[in-house]
Design a protein around this nucleic acid. Structure first.
Lengths: 213, 213, 213, 213
DNA sequence: ACGTACGGGACCACCCGTTATT
DNA sequence: AATAACGGGTGGTCCCGTACGT
């Protein structure tokens, strides 16, 4: 059979997606500045010409990662699942646990992709800041929505301030990722889970008493 | 009177300290990779030769920043003050408040220097990871020590797991810095304070009831 | 009445002309090397594919600019008008004045398009050299023709060397454009006009005395 | 004898001068944009690191070429020699002749270095424009000075406008270089010389009649 | 201890041109 | 005829580090 002359693939959507995926991984592993376009292009099996056809600058890939991948990640991992719970508080506790329990061992020391990008780039480039703020705001807003729902359904005490609590929920997750990364020790995930559950339960009405786990 | 030569004083200690201070600021503002040795040297009023005389590599300054500056920062800002409280829980709540209340406005969007460095570099260089882990461990260990003290003094309920709580205390501070940075909004500092205090108080014995703040 | 589709008209002639016009302007403003095909295509409202459909290479546009636009410019601005004068010397003086008086202010600092292209590219590409030489030769030849006519009609002194004078006429115009561009000061145009007229009149027979202007 | 390990030369003045000289030649031959820093560094026997130690940007070399080399060239080739003539008009005619007679054959098609740089870059970068304007202004000013001297000494007719004449002298030289380059024919140099002499003599007082050459 | 010339490498961006496709 | 994906390659810049010199 004649050697097919390495036919040039011509599928822009797939090419772009592949570049984006590879770029995400490279940036996640090496940091935004540590990632090299040459390497990304090479690993994605395209040339730099193709790379720059799909993304005008390196920053643009970063933006796309936030807008397309990380945002979707939050939606999938946190927001969408909450809809399945009658008691959103239970849902949050469960999702918290699930998130960190299923977090791949090799990524413990890598932390949260969104947090990494934000920490590294939000001070450098205002668009990065805007975009990560947008995703975080989405995360916060949706969390707030579910917390309000929880309160309406009687799963939260009257005095609880929804806004502060939503911020706690997100803040503590980010902090947990950061600690896991810094200590490279996933046992902090469980510690965090214990505290997370403990705090949230302390805000439930007394009547909702339930077994200690 | 002898001619006092105005020529540059050759005081290695001072020179080193100045370089370190400038490097810290540059790295804090631009990130480790974003900071340039040329710029650091220039801002410190020395040449690159002087820089490399005091620090063998760029990484070495990073190490020194963690070992000397950031470690000292934790000690001063958190650990040392706790000794002054009879009730360490009150101390932590107060120090949490103080830390974030006095955090300069222009640094809100810059976050925690230790966290920044760790996030950016711990995945790149093992020594960075070791060193930041060491500082974090110090922070955790000392916090644990005071928590144990608190429990011994009856300021914590029996069932509270000290290790988890210590991790919470540190994790939540890191998370708070990260959120403040990402959202560039210091109002999250107050939200975090409310949650922090709320959670810690929920772990106090009931008898210790105190005014609503 | 048949549906006139508003979709892009596929009129190769017009497309080509538009590309050529835009390319001329870009190259005139940015220089040949400074001009980008992407930008030209974009400004012409076509894609790069269309560009390369009409011009095999970037150089080809350059050639077309000389062959079609610049050559026509010389004919219109200089050669054709001379035919309308009984005394070609008067014609040249008048056309010299007209050329520089009507030269748009915003193009003073841009100089002569032909001269620019020639200066930049004649040393790089032999075809550029040939083509600009051809246009210049046309300019020189036609000027010579009119000068000979002038001498035949008694408007030039016997001893005047036609070839040298023709070269002077062209050379000095190029020099004037270059000076105007370099100094970005159109007052040099008037200075040049004074010298041009002064020199040409000094070559007229004495009898042709005329008012001091 | 042991191999001397290619001792690193450490002579900044010479290094800089060598880079500058090579850069001048490369830019003169290839144009500013056509010249490559890699090639310049290589031909100068230094690395890019050394290049950028001496010149912060490519533009800076261009600036230095104008400020240091081209300016000196005008002074040496034109201004200084005029001082040696009792009759500056004769001096200019003689220097005009000398300039173009001694112009190396292989550089005829390259034109005037100052003119080349100016034509290519003055429209692109304002500093280039300023710097070349400064050199041209020097050239014009000094020429004017000698013309005034000539008039004072009775070598020019009363009515001659010094400013216009100075501009003519410079403009026509630039034009001559441009024509020589474009036609790649040094015979235009002689044509220009004839016209130059002819025009300047036409401005001398009648009494100063001299042989036809 | 410090100054500075210099080495060598890497990175982002761009650019011209080709080719598959409609 | 015209589009857009893609190929390669180069170019300027900057950066960390070395080593020579004082």
């Amino acid at each position: 059979m004649a050697r097919t002359p390495l036919k040039r693939q011509r599928n822009p959507k797939i090419t772009r997606a592949r570049i984006l995926e590879v770029a995400f991984m490279e940036i996640y592993c090496e940091g935004f500045r540590g990632a090299s376009i040459d390497v990304i292009a090479h690993k994605a099996g395209v040339t730099k010409g193709a790379f720059f056809h799909h993304f005008a600058t390196k920053f643009e890939v970063g933006y796309a990662i936030i807008d397309e991948l990380l945002r979707a990640g939050i939606l999938e991992r946190w927001i969408a699942p909450l809809a399945r719970y009658d008691n959103p508080i239970d849902g949050m506790i469960a999702q918290f646990k699930l998130t960190f329990e299923t977090w791949p061992q090799e990524y413990v020391a890598r932390g949260c992709p969104l947090n990494n990008l934000t920490q590294e780039m939000s001070g450098v480039d205002p668009i990065f800041k805007d975009k990560s703020r947008a995703v975080l705001t989405l995360w916060l807003t949706e969390t707030e929505r579910y917390l309000r729902q929880a309160r309406a359904r009687g799963f939260l005490r009257r005095g609880v301030r929804i806004r502060d609590l939503a911020r706690f929920v997100v803040t503590f997750q980010e902090g947990t990722f950061a600690m896991g990364k810094a200590l490279d020790d996933r046992s902090v995930f469980d510690s965090s889970y214990q505290s997370f559950r403990s705090y949230l339960r302390s805000l439930m009405p007394i009547s909702t008493g339930r077994p200690a786990h």
